[in-house]
Every structure is written in C-alpha cells, then in structure tokens.
Simulated scan of single mutants.
Amino acid sequence: MSDDGGRLTHLAASGEAHMVDVGQKNETVRTAIASATVTMEPRTLQTILAGDAKKGDVIGTARIAGIMAAKRTHELIPLCHPLLLTKVTVEIEPDETLPGLRIQATASLTGRTGVEMEALTAASVTALTIYDMAKAVDKAMSIGDIALIEKTGGKSGDWRRAAN
C-alpha cells in the first residue's frame, strides 16, 4: 500500500515486508465500498432468482459469506490489521444486461487504519460463494470487475473511482 508520497508502506527500507505501525494515527470514521460482478447464463440467473439452486438460497448465503469474510480479512491477507468493524453490508442485485449479479460491499469503522481490504474481501468472497453455489448449473460463470469504488476518512482523505 502506498499512501506516503508514493513509497510502499508495507516494505522496510531493506525491502522486507512488515505490518505498518498505525498506533500514532488519529482515529477517524472510515468507510470503503467495493464491487464485483458474477456473469452467467440467463437460465442460471433465473434459477438463482427463483430460489431453485440445489444448494439453497444463493443470494442469502453469499451475503452472509461476504460479511463473515470482511470480519476475517486479517486472517486471509498478510499484514492486514485485525479491525473492529462497526458495519458490513453486502448488496446483491440482478442485472439482466450482464446477465448476472452485481455485488456491492461496504465496510465501516472508527479507527486508525482503512477498511478497503475488508470491503474488497467481502465483495470477492460473495462472488466466490455465488459461483460455488451455482456451479452445478453453470461452470462457465465468470467473476470480474472487483474494484474499490470509494473510501472515506484517514490521513489520505476521501477517494472515489472515476466513472467509466
């Protein structure tokens, strides 16, 4: 991560990786929003929306998986701090133009470090769970467009992805 004048903050001067000391940072309200898509055959989307997937409620299960993943990001991504998240939401909306599902994950807290990785992890694991639960119907599904949409708070301030 680079938020220090272009310098990678997770690398020591000698090049080895280390966890950044955030102890002296100010606590601020921090929020991050990330997104992902799962593209699939139209019949797969209809199966999911009808609740007819053999493994059960695809959207509900994927939402829970994304929330759980955000809470465990520090166990999955090296050098991430364990965070006391105050809010995680996962929204999953059908999009027949894909065709498929659009995912938006939001993570928030009041703390000393950002929640971008938690939002990105939530969006990613949500997409992976959708794939897992519907792969019996459509192994050709594709996961894509995983991206940070915006983040607020912290020393570097607010940021928003430019519209395409």
Rank of each mutant, 00 (worst) to 15 (best):
S2F: 12
V137S: 08
V115G: 06
S142A: 15
T121H: 05
T121F: 06
R161N: 10
Q46S: 13
L101M: 06
T39S: 13
E16L: 11
E27T: 14
M40W: 02
E41M: 01
G114A: 09
Q104S: 14
A32I: 03
T97S: 15
L83G: 03
S35D: 11
V29E: 15
I64T: 15
L85S: 07
R161C: 05
E96V: 00
K87H: 13
T73M: 02
L120C: 13
T44C: 13
Q104F: 00
I48T: 03
A53G: 04
K87Y: 07
P78E: 05
V38A: 04
A50D: 15
G60V: 10
L101Y: 08
I67K: 02
E96D: 14
A140I: 05
T28L: 04
N164L: 11
A13S: 11
A62W: 00
T39N: 08
G51D: 08
V58T: 01
K155A: 09
E116V: 02
G66Q: 09
D3K: 02
M1L: 05
D158I: 14
L84S: 03
R7E: 14
A69Y: 04
A134E: 04
M68R: 04
A53R: 03
T106V: 07
A70G: 02
K139Q: 13
G56F: 00
M68D: 07
C80W: 11
L148E: 13
D52C: 10
S2W: 06
K54V: 00
P99A: 10
E27H: 09
L98M: 10
S14I: 03
E91G: 04
P78A: 07
A12E: 14
N164A: 14
G114K: 02
I33K: 12
T121Q: 09
Q46L: 13
Q24A: 15
E75Y: 10
L109V: 05
